[in-house]
């Protein structure tokens, strides 16, 4: 049936992903917290004990501001990419707006993201930082990250229907990005000539903005936010366009 109940459908698909993930797990939601904490401890150990020259005060806060936005990005992008193939039965046999498949997958990841952001805020607070007015910018910054990864997932999930190698390209890109996003280093340590390039990468921009807000308690530079907004929205528009073009032959390839 032609859908005019997109909200109900989207909600149910998100709920499905969330329920399936946590049912039959004794630790449930704790797993969302464990992974970034382990990464935080590891990287803090390496950069305060092994390479103390590269350390910064409150390094664990510094690095967690990078880990959490990056983790969300990489997990959401991979699962978004696999979503159309993974839901082949829905895509092939049911009349629904197909865009909803990758979008609901990305949005289901937002639940874990929200839990992890709560963890981040708790760690920031425990380290002695007081909430400041710039915290109000966090939902905007993190929201733009969701917009970006949605756009990107629309493109890669559609391509993955035609070329199953796309998932490996995405995984490799994530490995590259782990190093090319300033997670355990700061933009000031990067040669100046590359700064512009870093800022046009929305994941890096989100990390930098989070660090401004939470670690330095300052406002992120407006130019950074403009770039983040521009690239994220561009990717969403491009994603909807590409997906719209490619979805016509999905049923023939799945």
């Amino acid at each position: 049936m032609r859908h005019n109940n997109h909200g109900f459908l989207l909600g149910n698909l998100i709920l499905r992903d969330f329920r399936i993930r946590y049912r039959n797990m004794s630790l449930g939601i704790l797993w969302s917290l464990l992974n970034p904490l382990v990464m935080m401890v590891l990287l803090t150990f390496v950069f305060t004990r092994v390479f103390p020259a590269l350390s910064k005060p409150n390094f664990h806060v510094f690095v967690l501001c990078g880990i959490i936005p990056f983790n969300f990005f990489s997990v959401a992008w991979v699962s978004g990419t696999l979503s159309v193939n993974g839901n082949a039965a829905l895509v092939k046999k049911v009349i629904l707006p197909r865009e909803i498949v990758p979008l609901s997958t990305v949005l289901a990841n937002c639940i874990h993201f929200a839990i992890q952001v709560a963890l981040l805020l708790a760690v920031v607070w425990l380290a002695g930082y007081k909430p400041n007015g710039y915290w109000a910018l966090l939902p905007v910054v993190l929201g733009l990250e969701v917009v970006f990864v949605s756009g990107l997932s629309l493109i890669t999930s559609a391509l993955d229907v035609y070329f199953r190698d796309v998932r490996y390209v995405v995984e490799s890109a994530n490995t590259v990005l782990f190093w090319m996003v300033p997670i355990f280093y700061d933009l000031s340590q990067v040669p100046y000539g590359y700064h512009e390039l870093y800022q046009y990468n929305p994941v890096a921009a989100v990390v930098l903005a989070c660090r401004n807000i939470l670690y330095e308690a300052t406002a992120p530079p407006p130019t950074l936010l403009y770039k983040l907004f521009f690239v994220s929205v561009l990717f969403l528009v491009a994603g909807l366009f590409v997906f719209g073009k490619l979805k016509r032959r999905f049923a023939d390839y799945l």
């Binding site: 005019n4 109940n5 459908l9 149910n12 499905r16 329920r19 039965a89 049911v94 009349i95």
Partner: peptide, 28 residues
């Protein structure tokens, strides 16, 4: 074209009814 689209074995019957109804285009 296929029955139970979106059905998942780990969800309860009731949860699957809601999911499948949404998938088929029913309103809340």
């Amino acid at each position: 074209l296929e029955l139970g689209s979106g059905f998942h074995p780990d969800l309860t019957g009731a949860e699957n009814v809601y999911l499948n109804a949404a998938v088929l285009g029913l309103s809340r």
